[in-house]
Amino acid sequence: MSFLKRLKEKFTAQTDAVTEKFKTGLEKTRNSFSTKVNDLVKRYRKVDEEFFEELEEILISADVGVHTVMELIDQLKDIARTRNIQDTMELKSAISETLAAMLRKDDEEGALALQNGQMTVILVVGVNGVGKTTTIGKLAHQLKQQGKSVLLAAGDTFRAGAIDQLEVWGERAGVDVIKHQEGADPAAVIFDSVKAAKSRGVDVLLCDTAGRLQNKVNLMNELEKVKRVIEREVPGAPHEVLLVVDATTGQNAMSQAKIFSQATNVTGLVLTKLDGTAKGGIVLGIRHELDIPVKFVGLGEKIDDLQAFDPEQFVYGLFMNMEEEEAE
């Protein structure tokens, strides 16, 4: 059974809310990407160099990233040669299978590193405007749904309205926020938040941070200071450093990811607004080129639209039109 057919069997039987969110959330990317690949397969019935050249262009236009595309094409050529695939229809399944493998190299890497028997500290970083504060609120809601007690730290003291926005999300999620005045030292806010979380016996502390990129030196120094405070108060923390990037910005998201990876040890990615872009291929580009696992994706504006990332769900959401056409 082909990889695409296996995914179809798995996810048509699994008609849950999460599967539906991936289907609808990836509609723009799917309509753009799948249509082009299907058209390519129809025009080239035989796998040859020209076919691969056009496939390369399609992948690059989906913002997968040049380096990733080149490696993906090389892998597909090897697969075609090894399996003696000459019909382009047969190669469609190999494309989806290879993408899924590139998105997750380890079955456990997509899971949050929640600590057993002690507080988990999660640092959330990213530039302003990518949906960082919204992501924190949605993640707080999700963790509460799992039975965890959560506290929020308003560590972005520079952006006007950031503290108020976090408080609004805190109310929606039903969790408290530790804050100082606007312009206060972020490290001092984080220090007080860690102390409060310890005294309350909280399961998870989610820390917001400023997202200024105008001066990378300041950004790096500030994040290092915040990390030192956390490490001193909670040995081994932060247990996660989640980088939030806006999927609609395409290759700009890649640039941001590189800068933050230099500033701090990013352990996972959150790609927001994936439902609002036709260039969802950026997920693969960032994951592969920076070797950082994708932990969550934003597939809508509702409080429960932040979804744990599943490579197979993602690939099926991307390719389901292709499989349906193949089955006709």
Rank of each mutant, 00 (worst) to 15 (best):
D156T: 01
D164G: 05
E231I: 06
T68C: 14
T19W: 06
A62D: 15
L166G: 02
D291P: 00
Q146G: 10
T68G: 05
T98N: 06
L243Q: 06
L99A: 11
L274H: 06
G281E: 08
G25F: 12
K5C: 03
L306G: 05
K225M: 12
Y44Q: 00
E323R: 15
H141M: 05
V202E: 02
R200P: 01
L206M: 04
R30S: 14
I286D: 04
G126S: 01
G300K: 02
A184P: 13
I95M: 07
G317D: 13
T120M: 10
E49W: 07
L318M: 15
G65S: 10
E233R: 15
D106Y: 07
A100Q: 11
D185Q: 00
R228Y: 14
S32D: 08
I230L: 09
E97H: 00
V294R: 02
N31V: 08
Q307K: 04
I286F: 05
A188K: 01
L26Y: 08
L318R: 10
V37G: 09
D305Y: 04
K21A: 13
E54V: 14
G183C: 11
A210E: 11
D305C: 09
K5M: 04
E167G: 02
M322E: 14
L7G: 13
E53R: 14
K227L: 12
L76W: 05
T19E: 08
V266D: 07
G183T: 09
A111P: 07
E325K: 06
F52S: 10
I292Q: 01
T272G: 05
L152A: 01
A100V: 13
D107Y: 00
N116G: 07
T264D: 07
V244M: 10
V37S: 11
R172K: 14
G300I: 03
V18P: 05
S149Q: 13
M1E: 03
R104N: 12
P311Y: 04
A253C: 04
E90N: 11
F296S: 13
V241E: 10
V241D: 09
L299K: 07
G155N: 06
D246P: 05
G298Q: 04
R172G: 03
G268Y: 11
N218P: 12
G285D: 07
I73A: 14
R83Q: 12
